[in-house]
Design a protein around this nucleic acid. Structure first.
Lengths: 357, 357
DNA sequence: CTGAAAGCGCTTACAG
DNA sequence: CTGAAAGCGCTTACAG
């Protein structure tokens, strides 16, 4: 009895779920499937009456074209792939990525594209996932994160001429499409901001050789100091993983409590800046009275910290938007080319940087 | 000349890009396409030698099955849809959503599913986007956000028996699959945490009637106060949009500087809590010495604030993971059912709540 | 302006 | 154990 009911239910379900196809509406409208297809595609060769008749029937039957079938016939899925880290890595927890994704999604929608989000649970999966995305025909192009992508993957994509763009300047910058900020300039400007405010001993927090972003920002920092005739004190350059929240706390405290402590800290990331501010407080010092701090990324909470954090807006949304635009031209064009686009940064002045003397 | 080169390039590209199909490998292996298809599907009826031969050829030719074609034949895309707000709404900037997405993605990957991320640029687009996702055959199910979804959409999905799950308890909770925290309990527990610490005047910040989450948390707050024999002072219940960073600053300041100011504030969200802490500071008061504050969501920065914020961990990752699991059973089962799953919350005790007298 | 037919690249009863 | 054939639901030259 129970089984019978379930069975009946399942049948009912099938009935309801059964798709109406182009053939069904063709029959109902007394035209050929070709014609229905053409009215869907807005083919101008179709007569006005026919068009209207077919449209009417489509509404009545609640017809929705099957995208999969269309994609197969078309060889166009209007889907691009984005690979995000899932489990192990904390990177995606950084507000930068959601913003990037929002940017990508926003312009993708305008072009009537969708995003296929492939999650990976370990970095080693990335290669295979990207291969799958590119070879299986599901995706017309992919957006990669420079900080994660490895060269073999790029080489492979290039070899099969699969459209892709990298977010963040890659190593072989002339042979791929990429978008990024001008990070050395951003590092330069924020450091100059300290210098202009009278700072002479400025620390750099968050150098991580494996991430080009941080080395670029460091280059800018260095340039600004040199231009101002201030030497680089390597004791004030602190390495630490970019996305890591905690840097080497002991070293940091020594520096903060030492006699040669800096009056300012440029941190490669707002999270690092928050960490620094916390340590500074724990050392009995105050921001910005004793030490000024600035960060990068302008995370949503930067304006909420006490004091509000001076930082540089990198415009992650814009980076995502531009990334999709590049990808789209790469997908649409018959001829290969390598493009870059630079998204401008902006210093957001708040209260964590003090004017000295 | 230039054109010729470009042309040659385009041709070259086509050659390289030209997919190898199941027929190509069938020919090369001297078997039928059916056989190749079966070895891909690991059909046990295929002989060992044949299997090996075909596998070898597949490697050699670098064959990758076309997912679109397979999906069409199969009627199974292994893709689920998630709709995220893109432009107008700031909601997605909240760390909750990326975490949710990570959770969804993480278990989707385990089941070999992918996520189709549909961005919408205005709330009104949502209905159409979801209809498209569900009708076009691209997606086998969708995950909706309770706070955004409207009833007509749910009704429609139910009518066509399309699998979906809602994140956040919806209004008609018995007729859909959903996952959520027990928010009234969470509100109860965090309020009791204040009471246990000797607080008697406790404010509630962030009530927003249009968001069930906040009204649920408020119910818990109320229950805890009543249980403890403490009356509700409606002057201490502050409405404000849940995801809004700024509440009504003037009202808030009046309360903080008034003679009947609370000793504790339960904020519906960490961002609101940060905002409150800032205002408290601006009023010349200190957290937690003068006023204790707690939030919800345990955002990454909660441990960095000064003082570190006591909050409730809602486990967005877990909510996402469970959402996908529910969706998967809904997709896989022939028989309809309505399931809910509650993800436990946990109070994270830090230093923003003070023990009183 | 419209239709019949072939094709997109797979899968899967059906036969043997 | 393997193959020929039909089919998934579209699109699009080719004919008329």
């Amino acid at each position: 009895m129970k089984i019978e009911v379930a069975h009946a239910l399942a049948q009912l379900e099938n009935e309801d779920t059964m798709r109406v196809t182009i053939n069904d509406v063709a029959k109902a409208a007394n035209v050929s499937p070709s014609t229905v297809s053409r009215v869907i595609a807005n083919n101008p060769r179709i007569g006005q009456e026919t068009r209207e008749k077919v449209f009417k029937i489509m509404k009545e039957m609640n017809y929705h074209p099957n995208i999969i079938a269309r994609s197969l016939a078309n060889k166009s899925t209007r889907i691009v792939g984005v690979v995000v880290p899932a489990n192990t890595e904390k990177a995606f927890q950084h507000p930068f990525y959601p913003e990037l994704l929002r940017g990508i999604g926003s312009v993708a929608t305008k072009y009537k594209y969708n995003i296929l989000l492939s999650s990976i649970n370990s970095p080693s999966e990335e290669k295979d996932v990207i291969r799958e995305l590119s070879r299986s025909g599901i995706t017309e192009g992919v957006i990669l994160l420079a900080s994660r992508v490895n060269d073999p993957t790029i080489k492979e994509l290039k070899k099969i001429h699969f459209p892709f763009v990298v977010v963040g300047r890659p190593e072989n910058e002339d042979e791929v499409n990429w978008v990024d900020n001008n990070n050395v300039n951003a590092g330069y400007e924020i450091t100059k901001h300290f210098i202009k405010n009278g700072h002479k001993r400025i620390a750099f927090l968050g150098l991580a050789p494996e991430f080009i972003v941080t080395t670029d920002r460091y280059k800018g920092y260095k340039k600004a100091l040199e231009e101002a005739g201030l030497g680089i004190d390597s004791g004030l350059v602190l390495e630490s993983k970019f996305i890591e929240h905690t840097t080497d706390i002991k070293v940091m405290k020594q520096i903060l409590t030492g006699s040669k402590r800096p009056t300012g800290i440029v941190a490669c990331d707002d999270f690092l800046a928050f960490g620094a501010m916390k340590l500074i407080n724990e050392c009995g010092l105050k921001v910005p009275e004793d030490i000024s701090v600035a960060g990068f990324n302008n995370v949503p909470l930067a304006s909420y910290s006490i004091p509000p954090l001076t930082t540089v807006e990198v415009n992650a949304f814009g980076l995502g938007a531009k990334a999709f635009e590049l990808l789209h031209t790469s997908i649409s064009s018959d001829y290969q080319s390598f493009n870059r686009t630079i998204v401008p940064t902006e210093i957001i002045t708040r209260e964590s940087v003090q004017v000295l003397g």
